[in-house]
Design a protein around this nucleic acid. Structure first.
Length: 270
DNA sequence: ACAGTAACCTGTTTGC
DNA sequence: TGCAAACAGGTTACTG
């Protein structure tokens, strides 16, 4: 479900309710997520104040004086702030309670994660090898060009790899390649620096616009207040197999690349 | 180091 | 209508 815009939307939505607040209780209902939820959290977190709430790629980082809680929403996760006495529903696996309010993780497919580290979080194995933030200055066309030389994977797989750049999932990879006019199947090692410049620009624009729209709701993504995101209406190619390309009117095509659905226009992308 | 595939899990949609 | 297969926004782990 959530790509970078959805995670950022979530971060912004929950921050005002939990930043600076003190944890009163932790409830683990389902410890079996992507990795086991650390069983010591209910002893370790209460009485500690949440000092920072950051995002790195699609990871949310909840900073405490004595460590960092790392959360990931996987394919189907969502976080909401609710009154602490709200009865949990079927897939509500984890609660971080702050007095009368509670941060609740719901994740039907359980590909999400809740982890704890006392080391500097940037050294955590899941975080340390990540590429640059797409909305930062260190993410450039030159970076894409340099990293892709002598590689053969398709450009779509290349930009979806978190070691290349973080936060570009399947939806926005399709959209960025369309906007940049690049065929998703093209081997990444043969694309020119000028075209990578266009692609980096497209990634930045699309992610920034999606964040402003509150993310993309396809089936069940909700912002922290329970409202859907509105970027789905602005998707040019994703999920539009057979529809007319907004640029030239040709039918949008659908293929599978690396087991992920891919959509493109054969005329506007080359 | 790279490329390709399977794996984790549940819910919904599609096809016979 | 019923049932099974296919598919879904992510990422790691394993194989060659």
């Amino acid at each position: 479900m959530p790509e970078l815009p959805e995670v950022e939307t979530t971060r912004q939505g929950i921050a005002p309710f939990i930043l600076g607040k003190t944890v009163s209780r932790v409830t683990i209902r389902q410890p079996s997520l992507r990795w086991p939820v650390p069983s010591e959290l209910p002893e370790r977190l209460p009485r500690h104040k949440l000092k920072t709430l950051k995002r790195r790629g699609k990871y949310l980082l909840l900073g405490f004086r004595h460590g960092t809680l790392i959360m990931h929403l996987g394919m189907s996760g969502s976080l909401r702030v609710l009154p602490a006495n709200t009865p949990p529903e079927k897939h509500d696996h984890f609660d971080l309670v702050f007095g009368r309010q509670c941060l609740r993780l719901r994740d039907p497919r359980r590909f999400g994660a809740v982890l704890w580290t006392t080391d500097p979080v940037e050294q955590h194995p899941l975080i340390a090898s990540l590429g640059p933030e797409p909305l930062s200055e260190s993410f450039t066309g030159r970076h894409l060009f340099n990293r892709s030389r002598n590689r053969k994977v398709t450009v779509k797989q290349f930009i979806m790899d978190g070691k290349t750049v973080v936060g570009v999932g399947n939806i926005y990879a399709n959209e960025a390649l369309y906007q940049a006019g690049i065929l998703p199947t093209r081997p990444c090692g043969g694309i020119s620096a000028a075209r990578y410049e266009r692609l980096a620009q497209a990634v930045k624009e699309i992610l920034a616009r999606a964040i402003k729209s509150g993310g993309t709701t396809l089936q069940d993504f909700t912002q922290a207040d329970g409202k859907p995101g509105y970027f789905a209406q602005e998707l040019q190619v994703y999920g539009r197999q057979g529809e007319a390309c907004p640029g030239c009117g040709a039918a949008i095509r659908h293929i599978v690349i690396g087991q992920r659905s891919s959509y493109y226009c054969r005329h506007c992308q080359r």
